[in-house]
Computed example of a mutant assay.
Amino acid sequence: MGDRVRLAVAGAGAFGREHIRMLAASSDVEIVGIADANRAAAEAAARDFGATEIASDANEMTSRLKPDGLIVATPGPTHVAIAGHALGLGIPVLVEKPVAMTPADATALVEAEGTSASFVMPGHVL
Rank of each mutant, 00 (worst) to 15 (best):
H85I: 04
G88M: 06
A45M: 04
N59S: 09
E60V: 14
T52K: 15
F49I: 08
N59L: 09
A40W: 02
G50F: 03
T52A: 15
L87N: 02
V72A: 08
N38H: 07
L89Q: 05
G69W: 03
M61N: 04
L65N: 05
A86Y: 05
P77M: 01
P77T: 01
S27C: 11
L65H: 06
A35L: 10
A51N: 03
I54R: 06
K66N: 13
A41Y: 02
A35G: 07
V32L: 14
V80K: 00
L89M: 06
T62W: 10
S63W: 10
F49H: 01
A83S: 12
D28P: 07
P67W: 15
S63Y: 09
H85W: 06
I31T: 11
A42L: 12
V32A: 14
S26V: 12
E30M: 14
T62L: 13
I31H: 03
A41T: 06
G90V: 12
A40E: 09
A35K: 00
T52M: 14
A44R: 13
E43L: 15
I54F: 12
G69M: 11
L89E: 04
S26F: 07
G50M: 06
A51W: 01
I34C: 10
L70Q: 03
E30R: 15
N59M: 12
I91A: 13
A46G: 02
A35Y: 10
L70G: 03
T62Q: 07
I54V: 15
A35T: 05
M61A: 15
G50N: 04
E43Y: 11
H79V: 08
D57L: 05
R39M: 15
N59Y: 07
D28K: 15
H79Y: 13
A83R: 00
G84W: 04
I34T: 09
E43G: 13
I71C: 11
G88A: 08
I91Y: 06
E53C: 14
G69D: 08
R47Y: 07
V29P: 00
D57G: 03
V29E: 03
L65W: 03
E43H: 10
L65T: 05
P77Q: 02
S27V: 13
R47V: 13
V29W: 02
L87F: 01
R64G: 08
G76S: 09
H85R: 00
A35C: 11
A37L: 12
H85K: 00
S56M: 14
A35S: 09
R64I: 12
G90I: 11
S26Q: 15
L89R: 05
F49L: 09
G76R: 02
T78P: 04
A83L: 06
A58W: 09
D28N: 14
H85Y: 10
G50Q: 02
A81P: 12
R47H: 08
A37K: 14
G69C: 07
H79A: 06
P67C: 15
A45C: 02
K66F: 02
I54E: 01
A46D: 01
S27F: 06
A44H: 02
A86G: 10
